[in-house]
Amino acid sequence: MVHTIGNENNTYNPFIIAKNKDIEIKYIDFGIENYGQLIRIEDSNIILLSQLIKGMKKSFFIVAHELGHYVLKHKNQVSDARVRDEFEANFFATDLCFEFYREQHKKKATQPRQLLEYGMPMEMAMFI
């Protein structure tokens, strides 16, 4: 799925993909509880990002994660399915950042720490 979306957009940059999919990105004050959220309002999709990560590397991973929810058609749920949805969105985001690294550096990331460049948390290393 990541390769398909990358090929469709001629990039793996999550910000460009969001723009191409007409997903607006807005920065808001989440406090410290949350860094991002995908919201759907009728036919519009918006990724809300915390002001705390504006301009930070972490924002790449967070946008990629929220794109994962969009692409995988996750619903906002409060249930056991939410745990699965978060796992799938993390997997998608890690794979997207992995391919974005390859796109930018013209070589494959061989160690999880290389993806820290895009704000990938080290606990996501299990997905590589």
Rank of each mutant, 00 (worst) to 15 (best):
A64Q: 15
V78N: 12
K58V: 14
Y118S: 13
K26W: 08
L49C: 10
A89W: 02
E66Y: 07
H105F: 14
V71N: 05
K58P: 04
N90P: 03
V78Q: 13
H65W: 10
F127H: 02
T94H: 06
T4F: 12
Y118A: 05
F87Q: 11
L52E: 12
L116R: 05
F60D: 12
I47A: 03
R84G: 11
G55N: 08
F61K: 00
I5L: 12
E66A: 01
L52N: 15
D80T: 04
I17C: 01
N76Y: 10
G55I: 09
Y118E: 12
M120I: 03
E86I: 00
T94F: 14
L72K: 05
T4P: 03
K19M: 04
H74S: 09
K58F: 11
A93N: 11
K21A: 09
E42R: 03
I41V: 09
F61D: 15
I25G: 01
Y35R: 14
Q37I: 04
F87C: 10
V78A: 08
K75C: 06
I25C: 02
E42M: 14
N13M: 01
D95S: 10
A125W: 00
C97F: 10
A109V: 15
A64G: 01
E33L: 07
A18N: 00
K106T: 11
L72C: 03
F60E: 13
E88V: 01
N10M: 05
I53R: 15
V78M: 07
G31N: 07
E24F: 05
D80S: 07
K75R: 02
F15Y: 03
V71R: 10
R82E: 15
V83E: 15
G55L: 14
Q114N: 05
P112N: 05
A81R: 07
K54Q: 07
L67E: 04
Q114P: 04
I53Y: 03
I47R: 14
A81F: 10
A109T: 13
A93D: 15
D95T: 10
